[in-house]
Amino acid sequence: MPPAKKRARTYDPAKIRTAVIAQFGHVRRAVGALTDDQLALPTRLEGWTVRDLAAHVTMAVETVSRNLDRDEPAKAELTLLDWPFATAARAGDIADGTRDLAEANPDLDALYARTEERLTAHLEAASGERLLAARTGVMTLADYLVTRTVELVVHSDDLNAAVPGLRIPYDRQALAACTRLLADALAVKAPGGSTEVRIPPYAVVQCVEGPRHTRGTPPNVVETDPLTWVRLATGRLAWRDAVAEAKVSASGERADLGGLLPLMG
């Protein structure tokens, strides 16, 4: 795990709480309208159906409520910028748990309603400084909720990709937080100032060792849109394909990020 030497940017806790609830609501409404045939479709997550993925979204949110129900840990173990690099180790457990949850809850409407009710109630009562014993390590609630924007945005995109015609909207604050956290993770993985990565309108980061840019137009520039960046950072889209399809512009000898991506498996 790369050391999180970069100082994490700050997020407005109230806006992040609202964003998590809003994006979960978008997914809930979309999943509630899916047919059995649509729920049986495959997704780009190997071995997962749409039903499995829909169940997983509730699991990613229910972990907030479940951990708030537990005793508070003594101290934090994980910073926000550590989190993207700590997720791969739990992928197997998460996959098994997802399939079990989907099988045990054929009524997705009821599962989503129960999850949303618990989340809303818990967030009304909990402080952002409250520590949670998450799968990846102990974090503050405020930081953990930022990670939930990544889960919700990424899987909203997965569902949209899996079901023809599905258009789950993206809450602006959720997409912004997701984009920024993954951009900052790149700067942690490849510290430096030779390359500027632009993801308008949400993030600009400096990364990659080499001559540091100080003024004027940087010699190495990468620019893309938020959803393309999210797909690159999470392995949904290969760098070479994004460049070939003109979804990314990259100029300069240090603008090839292919060897640094994905950031999350």
Score class of each variant (00 low, 15 high):
246 A>R: 14
42 P>L: 15
142 A>V: 08
256 D>L: 04
188 V>F: 02
256 D>V: 08
253 E>Y: 02
89 A>T: 09
100 D>W: 05
234 T>P: 03
75 K>Q: 15
263 L>S: 00
49 T>Y: 05
144 Y>F: 15
221 V>A: 04
10 T>K: 07
141 L>T: 01
55 A>S: 15
45 L>V: 12
251 S>N: 12
165 G>L: 08
65 S>F: 01
81 L>Y: 04
183 A>F: 01
134 A>P: 00
257 L>F: 09
164 P>S: 09
255 A>R: 00
179 T>V: 06
86 A>R: 05
191 P>S: 02
99 R>F: 12
78 L>K: 06
155 H>Q: 08
112 Y>K: 03
113 A>E: 15
60 A>R: 05
18 T>S: 15
18 T>A: 15
123 L>D: 03
55 A>C: 08
227 L>H: 06
116 E>G: 12
12 D>Y: 09
30 A>Q: 04
207 C>H: 03
143 D>A: 11
175 L>F: 03
149 T>G: 08
41 L>H: 02
146 V>M: 06
48 W>R: 01
31 V>M: 06
239 W>Q: 00
228 T>M: 09
89 A>H: 04
136 T>F: 07
51 R>F: 12
195 T>S: 05
5 K>S: 12
189 K>G: 06
195 T>I: 07
209 E>H: 10
149 T>P: 05
1 M>Q: 11
50 V>E: 09
227 L>N: 03
61 V>I: 13
15 K>S: 14
262 P>V: 05
118 R>G: 07
172 R>P: 02
125 A>N: 03
72 E>M: 06
32 G>Y: 09
